[in-house]
């Protein structure tokens, strides 16, 4: 049980895919123009991550090492396509928000990375705990980036006006350079926080 909690918490901070491992940068930089996009992309990726990790963990003894990557790609791509089809047919309201992001999940390397580095080596239950942690870690990270960019670029957060109607809008924050600026500054802040906490433990 302790191990499961540890696997879950790992993705939230210590090995946060966005701020610690710096993987999955393509969707992170591309879709974070608004906080809502971050939540939508994050949840869709978490969903696929949990199920692909489970499947790959279940099949880990069956897949020969030399062809494991093509096998993972087949599993992930199939899963994403099935999610895409069923969501379009049965949950059109959700599809309208997430539809744009679902095909992007195929190329989200967090899913490949977790399949390769974790799910293929552990029991299914641990793989799920890790996938949930990584997914939620990814979700909060890109939602935060989205919120910062939306606040500075549009003056809103989650569509609500925060800065007032007449505040100056930094359009650059909504354009690609804004993604790099925000990512870099948040990463720096994360590093400062982590370094401090390490120093403290050494003092005691």
């Amino acid at each position: 049980m302790y191990q499961l909690v540890k696997d879950f918490l790992n993705g939230l901070w210590n090995e946060n895919p966005t701020f610690r491992m710096i993987i999955g940068m393509c969707p992170t930089l591309a879709v974070t123009t608004a906080a809502m996009n971050g939540i939508a992309m994050g949840l869709a990726a978490t969903f696929v991550l949990v199920f692909s990790s489970l499947l790959i963990s279940l099949l880990r003894n069956f897949i020969p090492a030399k062809v494991r990557i093509p096998c993972y790609i087949i599993v992930i791509a199939t899963f994403v396509t099935v999610v895409d089809l069923f969501m379009a047919g049965y949950f059109p309201a959700m599809y309208r928000i997430l539809g744009l992001f679902i095909p992007l999940i195929v190329v989200n390397c967090i899913i490949m990375a977790r399949a390769e580095a974790f799910a293929s080596k552990v029991t299914p239950i641990r793989a799920i705990a890790d996938a949930l942690g990584m997914g939620i870690g990814f979700t909060w990270a890109i939602t935060l980036i989205g919120a910062v960019r939306e606040l500075m670029g549009s003056g809103t957060v989650f569509g609500y006006h925060v800065l007032g109607e007449n505040a100056t809008r930094w359009v650059i924050m909504l354009l690609p350079p804004g993604a790099f600026l925000t990512m870099g500054i948040l990463l720096g802040i994360m590093n400062v926080i982590t370094r401090k906490s390490v120093k403290n433990t050494q003092c005691h």
């Binding site: 089809l85 069923f86 379009a88």
Partner: peptide, 8 residues
């Protein structure tokens, strides 16, 4: 999946 989802 396609067969099931496409009419919907």
């Amino acid at each position: 999946s396609y067969e099931i989802a496409i009419p919907k």
